[in-house]
Nucleic acid binder design. Structure first.
Lengths: 153, 153
DNA sequence: GACAGGTAGTTGCCGCGACAACCACATTCC
DNA sequence: GGAATGTGGTTGTCGCGGCAACTACCTGTC
């Protein structure tokens, strides 16, 4: 209402816009490359990464959701789509009648093992090859600061 | 295939994950706050910003697309939704029979003027208040580097 | 002025994502 | 043990976003 808003400085505006741009371009590019290269979306990839990170390649749906910071409805639908394509399977949880496990299939494991090298290579080429170690360090600090601030309101 | 992939170092992995996390949380939060506070989405907001930046508050659809780095289909649909809500209006371009202008309405101008202060305040609180000027500078460098690298393949 | 190629914009289709409503089972409290 | 409350998952609805197909128009070139 009044004029005592603390607007952004020119530097801040540039940094803010640059960040938004960089993220938009980068994720679009990674998604596209992943899609055409291996038929996976970034979301598929993330799910598969989480499943391969864990012994047995099986997680309760809600655990997957926590790891990915996803809504449960998002988890549910993503798993449905992936299950249709054979990348994962659902299994009832014997110890909890409500629960469901999401299990990595052989085909899912193969898919991510084939997709990962090119994906990582692209992240490296587009992001890290252009940065000094100090910049990498600062990037982590900055991102960390945001996450911490989001934590407390 | 072979094992000569240059995987990410631990530092790089942390920075990468932190970036993805920070962006996911931040944009979710900004979107939510904007939505509940003023009924606008981030996309609505971006369109309105671009229109207010320009004299007369009118842009050809393709110009808007260039400014936002959006697909033309995305522009078209976004404008349709916003036009339904009275935030913008479409106008035929007299000088090009194919063309369409997107025009800021009074109601659109009011909407962004009401939404902007809280939005900027939130960006400041969640992002810039936690950063030193040097960090802001580095953030811009990093993001800029990514955008430049995306330019050339 | 006709035809080829390019450009502006819309639409269909599908995958993605948030929110809310809902179902089923678990837990707690009496 | 039965009601109240909580938790894990699914589904409906709607807005968002990319790609490809399509229409309409413009800009050459001959």
């Amino acid at each position: 209402m009044t004029d005592d808003v603390r607007w952004l400085t020119a530097d801040e505006q540039r940094a803010w816009r640059a960040w938004l741009d960089a993220h938009a371009w980068l994720s679009a590019r990674l998604n596209r490359e992943l899609q055409t290269g291996s038929g996976l979306s970034l979301s598929d990839y993330d799910v598969l990464v989480h499943l391969t990170d864990v012994p047995e390649g099986r997680l309760r749906a809600f655990e997957l959701g926590q790891g990915l910071q996803w809504e449960k409805s998002r988890v549910s639908r993503q798993v449905s789509r992936m299950a249709e394509r054979g990348l994962v399977a659902r299994e009832a949880a014997p110890e909890d009648g409500r629960g469901a496990y999401v299990v990595l299939t052989e085909s899912g494991r193969r898919a991510i093992e084939e997709a990962a090298p090119a994906h990582v290579e692209l992240v490296r080429r587009l992001l890290f090859d252009g940065l000094t170690p100090a910049q990498v360090q600062t990037l982590e600090e900055v991102a960390g600061s945001v996450v911490r601030r989001l934590g407390k309101s």
